[in-house]
Amino acid sequence: MSMRRKEILAEVWKHLFILFILSMAFLPLYVMIVISGKDGAQFVASPFKLTLPFHWENYAHAWSLMRAYVFNTVFICVTSVILTFVLSLNAAFFFARYRMPGHKFLWYFFLVLMLMPGVANLVPLFMLLKSLSLLNTFYALMVVYVTGGQVVQIFILRNFIEDIPQDLFDAAEVDGASPIKQVYHIVLPMSGSVLSTLGILQFISLWNDYILPLIVMRDDSMLTLAVGLVRMDGEYVKDWGALMSGFTIASIPMVLIFLFTMRLFVKGLAAGAVKG
């Protein structure tokens, strides 16, 4: 009997520990949402408690400030992720399925990049974009994001494609499918969970990127969300309600992504998509 009680007590402690960690993890979310509905007086009176009425107009105000940033960022991120998929799927297919002359050299051409930290590149990269007159355009960001994103994806997708049963490709070849068709009719349908995990991770990192848009973009209307948020945060007299509403709006695309792909994402993580 006492043994049983001890076990239950141990379980209770585990649950309490996890609940504590969870509550701390949810705290920023709580603070963000609660403050997003406050006007100035309510914020001064009790900053961290839910106060009524909830001022929805904060959201309208924040949206009017941030609309352009949100559209810019969504456009850049989605385009970059899709382009990265196209390039990396094809390249990974090439490395996984064929041993062409020079394929070793090409492989190491990409392998070296995995070891190369990007930090030294920043200044010359900026000068390069300047001389290509790409400054203050979306192309500058996209091209750099695609270049950086594809390297890791090629590695992970190569391993993944090598694990696809050979018979599938052989059968397709007998039926006269070209390599391109093999990529889009065999590899693509099978790699849903891996692609969604890679895509989400890339999307998140692009969504948060700050330094490149900061140095590349000149016009206020071309800025991305990250830079826009920091600008809003940096203003001297702050409207906390509108600021937090802006933060919440910036989180909404993540909510949408997770609603639709969470299952695939957790499965992809579990399958070791990011083990390296």
């Binding site: 990409f110 590149n121 390069l128 091209v143």
Partner: peptide
């Protein structure tokens, strides 16, 4: 041509800046 676009991008936007640095 499966790999040439990736390689060109990498050469222009990763290797060239590194050499330039």
């Amino acid at each position: 041509f499966f790999v040439v676009p990736s390689a060109l991008l990498v050469a222009t936007f990763s290797y060239f800046p590194a050499g330039s640095a």
